[in-house]
Design a protein around this nucleic acid. Structure first.
Lengths: 179, 179
DNA sequence: CTCCTTTGGTTGAGGTCTCAACTACTGATC
DNA sequence: GATCAGTAGTTGAGACCTCAACCAAAGGAG
């Protein structure tokens, strides 16, 4: 385990990121679910759709934004459609493409959930100054930029208009480990 | 969505954190798996065990550190034990407790994987100055601190075993950083 | 010592995701 | 216009996780 202390520090820094995200995510997700009745994944989808240009996004773009594979997004949307929150809209210019759009009910729920989420975040960030937040935004953006969003099986690029950016795709492939 | 722009900004900031984590995580996980043959979850576990006091951790503590429920950690360990990387060690003073410890093979794998991981991280952070890293560490620590470690089904709080960082909650951590 | 509450961990049932194979459609080439 | 490679999305099988019920041991009260 004797590695350069600098490497160790990097690993630890990354560990901080992972922990910050997982702890926050768990807490915020729980709150969202209890107070607004929406799983955090659903909220994420609703938000992305509403922020997209024309309030609709292709499945592929959505998949990238929420870090799911195309297969994953298909089923997630299926469930949300069953719940009456979103609907599939056929693309008029490319019949392969399916857009996701909010229903009135979905938009309504998003609004309520956003309010809850914002409240939670205000608490979480209560000890952060505007400068802190700005710095954090900057660092996270740079971090995000180092690696292109590289999820998915399928789509390659997203259409614009997302809250938190979009970008080119990356290489797939993976080997499962048998147990 | 008539909400205060400040709220909107917070939501977006949090979105950045989520994205930074998910994109990085996916990429690093893939690399780890391809180059070292370890799923990133396993790596995380190996690392936490090795860094724990006495190179052993209780299941509960481990569960918290990797953000899994107790049920989840039980099975994860089962798989890793099957693979010969870790072993369960009975606690001599409390027969309810099971410790996880590395086998020689596990320690070996960890060492190789750490090297891969550190290399990846060096690339990821290549555009970050020492000051940047320090700032990032600080911000993430503060973020982590706003919410206590979340409850995982079962254990309420674990003994010791600070995450992956240098010091337990207290003062903002000092990072040993050298070229 | 016995009862009872609390805590650590494991197990069964159910849910969501990834991977890989497959269908449908587009656009380029001949 | 027919062919073929590439792209968008869906679907089946398998992996992994969470929730909740459960067992075993520890610790305090009577």
């Amino acid at each position: 385990m004797a590695q350069a202390p600098a490497d160790d520090a990097l690993i630890t820094t990354y560990g901080r990121l992972v922990e910050a995200h997982s702890h926050l995510g768990r807490q915020l997700g729980r709150s969202l679910e209890q107070q607004a009745g929406v799983p955090q994944t659903w909220f994420e989808v609703l938000l992305r759709i509403s922020r997209a240009d024309g309030s609709q996004v292709s499945m592929g773009s959505l998949a990238q934004q929420v870090a799911l594979t195309s297969g994953g997004i298909t089923r997630l949307l299926d469930r949300m459609i069953d719940a009456g929150l979103v609907e599939r809209v056929a693309c008029p210019t490319d019949r392969r493409v399916a857009f996701a759009a909010l229903t009135a009910q979905g938009a309504d729920l998003l609004e309520r959930a956003s309010s809850v989420h914002a409240g939670d975040l205000r608490q979480v960030f209560s000890a952060f100054s505007d400068a802190d937040l700005q710095t954090l935004d900057d660092l996270l953006d740079r971090l995000r930029a180092t690696v292109g969003p590289s999820p998915t099986t399928g789509p390659s690029l997203a259409a614009g208009g997302d809250p938190v950016s979009t970008g080119p795709g990356g290489p797939p492939s993976r080997r499962p480990r048998d147990g």
